[in-house]
Design a protein around this nucleic acid. Structure first.
Lengths: 246, 246
DNA sequence: CGGCATTTTGACAATCGTCAATCAGTGTGG
DNA sequence: CCACACTGATTGACGATTGTCAAAATGCCG
């Protein structure tokens, strides 16, 4: 499977062969982490930045009342804690949802990339801003879409995101999440998440079992969800010449 | 009233006198915009970046069914569309909520600041990451907090944010939003927003009338809301020496 | 087979939305 | 000064969505 980080960054800026080589070097020493392991806790100030190369992870917060909100699904190519280099401490926790392959990048490497490699720096900015756009869309979903459309929407989003790093076919992908985890992400109870999934099945929109999602009619699912991929900014970057900026 | 942008950036990085002078120059030509004016539409690709110097604005999206979700309140010192320089097009719209004083910054100025002024660049990164943290906290609120706590939480957040740019006292501030606008931000109906505010009043936590909010017991309101300001990252930045990165 | 996590179902309750009416405040024109 | 219109806040009645609790069914793994 291709290097998900590079696939992703290529969408944010035109990298040169040298940029790619440099990035290859950065992700050279992967490590394996089991399922449901905390990677970073709230309040931590880690010195390395972690990157998901394989598997699913999530950002989450647990409230005093014990309720958990998952705020992002991290898939191959996603940074866990890029912010820490600038904000200092984590304001949320990160955990794996499945067994994952992770890479640690020293903070100095990040600083070097952002200071001396304008195309990579720009691509990293792009990643951060897309993450923010995804958060906004989740907020829209939670605020304004009924539960079944919300579920449909996140399934569409994962389809597009996983496709963009070569982890999904045209119509399906491995979805190794429990309904509890899905519900924690959508602000729904397990029971209601389950019933929403039933609706999608009964509508003939999806098949989901044993961790495998097959979308029976992608166009119809997207329409049902009100999904428009523009917020993922996968196409039509503005032209930009790093030399012109000097 | 002090320059809100500089107050804000100072929290993200140690600026030099020269940095401050440069920023002063950037925000020199303000313009006035009336209440409830669209500043940027979804799909726009503006060439300037806009900045709120005075007043309240918001990010929002309108769905096909006509429902609106406000995804951020923009207060003095906040950038409207910093992303556009890198993402190309707006994936959401921005409008004023009150009469506003705005400043336009050419995209080239932004590029110059980010490329040649490491402390300012870092401060801008800081702003983006804090915006993202605020979004995450809104997501937590919408997903896991009941309506009255949600209202209390956003009131606490605005208290702290407005204080940090000198627009709030220890216990209150001008809140020129209608309950409809508040509800659109929280994913609640007007009616339910109203009833949640009543609860807070009856609990003796706040007084709100004629656009002025007085918090009768800040500590108790924060406790009621489950508010912890850590996600705003107003204190304890990591030490960082721009020279060391070279 | 047994044990455990996960999914599914049913019954019921709580939260929240919708609709519609009323009330309060503000500004305008006569 | 008052009638009027308009916006926003508030209230009541009711219904829909979603949550909670508890139990049963299913699937997976040793």
């Amino acid at each position: 499977m291709a290097n998900a980080l590079i696939s992703k960054l290529e969408r944010g800026a035109d990298l040169t062969a040298e940029d790619r080589t440099r990035l290859e070097a950065v992700v050279r020493y992967p490590r394996e982490v089991g399922r449901r392991q905390d990677l970073i806790h709230e309040g931590d100030a880690p010195s390395d930045v972690q990157l998901v190369m394989e598997g699913f992870a999530c950002r989450y917060k647990v409230l005093a009342n014990g309720r958990r909100q998952i705020m992002a699904f991290l898939i191959p190519g996603d940074f866990c804690d890029f912010h820490v280099a600038i904000l200092g401490t984590m304001d949320h926790a990160i955990a794996t949802l499945t067994p994952c392959t992770m890479v640690s990048i020293p903070r100095e490497t990040i600083t070097d990339l952002t200071m001396h490699h304008p195309r990579i720096s720009r691509a990293l900015w792009w990643c951060t801003l897309v993450d923010e756009a995804i958060l906004r869309e989740w907020l829209v979903s939670m605020g304004q879409r009924p539960a079944d459309q919300q579920v449909a929407h996140v399934l569409c989003e994962l389809l597009v995101r996983l496709q963009s790093v070569g982890r999904a076919t045209e119509t399906g992908y491995d979805l190794p999440l429990t309904q509890q985890e899905l519900g924690d992400a959508l602000g729904l109870s397990v029971v209601h998440t389950n019933r929403s999934l039933q609706t999608l099945r009964q509508e003939g929109l999806i098949e989901l079992s044993a961790g495998r999602l097959s979308i029976r009619d992608v166009a119809r699912l997207k329409e049902f969800a009100g999904f428009s991929p523009n917020y993922l900014h996968l196409t039509s970057r503005p032209n930009w010449d790093p030399q012109a900026a000097n």
